[in-house]
Design a protein around this nucleic acid. Structure first.
Lengths: 150, 150
DNA sequence: GTATAAAGTTAAGCTCTCTTAACTAAAAAG
DNA sequence: CTTTTTAGTTAAGAGAGCTTAACTTTATAC
């Protein structure tokens, strides 16, 4: 029987590899499209959390509202996101990806997709089955955790 | 039977979550210790590739040798890494973590460890077994891929 | 053995991020 | 209805990263 901490070890190892690879992709991508890493971070945040506001961003990245506002402004000027007034609270803003922004995220994801495809290619049919099931289990667990109160 | 692209989809989804979480941890960590994100990236790179040189870093992050040299210098001044001459090629440098640097990486990993522990906690015994096996398969595949010629 | 290439460093200057401080406007509280 | 929070913006300035350009030192090529 496997312990919870043994599994953590395995996960940690795998995550290290994923992170190491993703970071490279990420900086390379940002560079080719002429967008900075902080801006890319915000773009991803908006991708994950639609209709989020400036404060959500400053919270997430641990920066001031002023900084968040300025970075968001650059993305707006780049037509990657749109910033509209929240009808329910006219102080707040609703940030969302534009079509161009969605296209960008799609391209970004495609890049990583290629690496993932390569990894999947190295597996046997049976292994794929196994891995697929396991990842679904983990994804569900991670999402449940995310949904819990902080 | 599962297709290779179906599996990729699952992997991609999982990776998104891992990335999203890791990025938060990473920037938060960098901030609390007073180190910049680019510097943290280099620290991780040296952690993964011992005895690497300045050029390896400029290649990896797609920056000039000058930039890499300057960033490395800050880490050296911070006693997080050491920079010594390569005895086999006296132009080159061998970059490695100091004890302080290793301790830092350890702490950094511990932080993520906690999240991973939480995810593992949500699984049943049987699921853990399953996930563990699958991650080992993926890790092996990813490492084989990494070892191949670029 | 001279010429060329490679590995790193240093300095000057540009750009970007981020902070503080002062501000506007809307919502909540009293 | 006035006061106080809350959400966000703007401007000025400090600090960090990164680039180009000029340079040193060591290895490689002819």
């Amino acid at each position: 029987m496997i312990s919870s901490s043994q599994l953590s070890q395995t996960m940690r190892h795998f995550m290290d590899i994923v992170m190491h690879h993703s970071m490279r992709e990420r900086s390379h991508l940002a560079k080719t499209v002429g967008i900075s890493m902080p801006q890319l971070g915000i773009l991803m945040q908006i991708h994950f959390h639609e209709n989020c506001g400036i404060s959500d961003i400053s919270d997430r990245f641990d920066i001031t509202n002023a900084a968040a506002s300025q970075l968001v402004d650059k993305l707006v000027q780049n037509s990657l996101i749109q910033r509209e007034e929240d009808p329910h609270d006219r102080r707040a803003k609703l940030l969302n990806l534009t079509e161009k922004g969605k296209e960008f995220i799609k391209q970004a994801t495609e890049r990583r997709y290629r690496w993932v495809e390569d990894v999947a290619q190295k597996l046997s049919t049976q292994e794929r089955e196994q891995v697929n099931e396991a990842l679904n289990i983990m994804t569900r667990a991670a999402q449940e955790l995310e949904a819990e109160p902080l």
